[in-house]
Amino acid sequence: MNLLEILSYGFIQRALLAGTLIALLCSVLGVFLVLRRLSLIGDGLAHVTFGSTAIALALKLYSAMSLLVSMPIVLLASLGILKLTEKGRLSGDAAIGLVSAVGISVGIVLASAGGGYNVDLLSYLFGNILSISREEVVIAALLCVGVILLLTLYYHELFAISFSEELAMVSGIRTSFINSILVLLTALSVVLAMKLVGIMLISSMLIVPAASALQLARGFKVCIALAALQGCSSVIIGIILSILSNLPASATIVLVNLLFFAAAFLARRIIYPKNSN
C-alpha cells in the first residue's frame, strides 16, 4: 500500500484530521502545564476519564455519546484538583494522585460489576484513533476551535502565571480564574485525546512535545510553536507508520514523539554546549 492509497481512505483522513487537532491542543497546553509543574495532571484526569467512561458504558452510552458523561465529570475533577491544591493544604502532585485514585477505582469497580473489561473499555485504555467517527471528528474540531480561541485570548495571562503567579497577581491578573481556565481546557483535551492515544498514554501527549520544545526554544512563543509542530508531526508520522507497519497507532505516535525528544535533547547539546547542564 503506498502513501496516496493510505490517504485516500476516509477513516484514515478522519484519524489524521482529528489526531492533528487533538495533538495541537495537547502540545500547546502542555507547555503551560510543564512550566507550572502540573505535568501529571493529564495522567490524573485520564484516570478520571477511565472512571467516567466506565459509567457511560454502564449507562449503555457509546462513542460520541459517552462524551456527554465523561466531559462534565472530568471538568469537575479538574476543578477539584485545583481547589484541593489551593485550599486543601495539598501539593499539586498529591491532589492529582487523590483525584486519580478516585477515577481509577470507580472505573475498576464498575467494569468488574459489568462483567469484566469489555472491548469498548479496552479501546479507551489504549486508544483507537482509526475507529474515530464523523461525529467525534466534528466534536473534536469544534472543541479545538474553542480551546485555541480561549488560549489566544488569554495568552498573556497564561504566560504571566506560568512565569510567576505572585507577579501576575500584583499585575492585577485574576490568577484563580486563569488557573481554572487552564485546568478546564486541559480536561477537555484529555477527554478528546483518550480516543487518540488512550488513557494510558495521554500524559505523554501533553508532556513530551513541551519537554522537547524546552530543549531548543529561545522565546516563549517559539516554545509553543515548536511544541505544536512536534505534536502534530508525531501524530501524522505515527498514524502513517502504524498503518504501514501494522502497529498500534497510539503507541507508535508516542514513540515518534519520544524520538523527537531524543533528537531535541541531543541537538541542544550540540547547539548550546555551554547551557546544556
Binding site: 495571562e157 504571566a160 512565569f163 501576575a168 499585575s171 524546552l214 522565546g219 516563549f220 512563543k221 517559539v222
Partner: peptide, 21 residues
Amino acid sequence: HLVNPVFPATVHETVGLGLLS
C-alpha cells in the same frame, strides 16, 4: 526564588509582562 531556570522567555518577553497591568 522566582525564576524557573528552564523558563524559555527572553528578556524582552519578560519585561513585557510588566505592561499587562
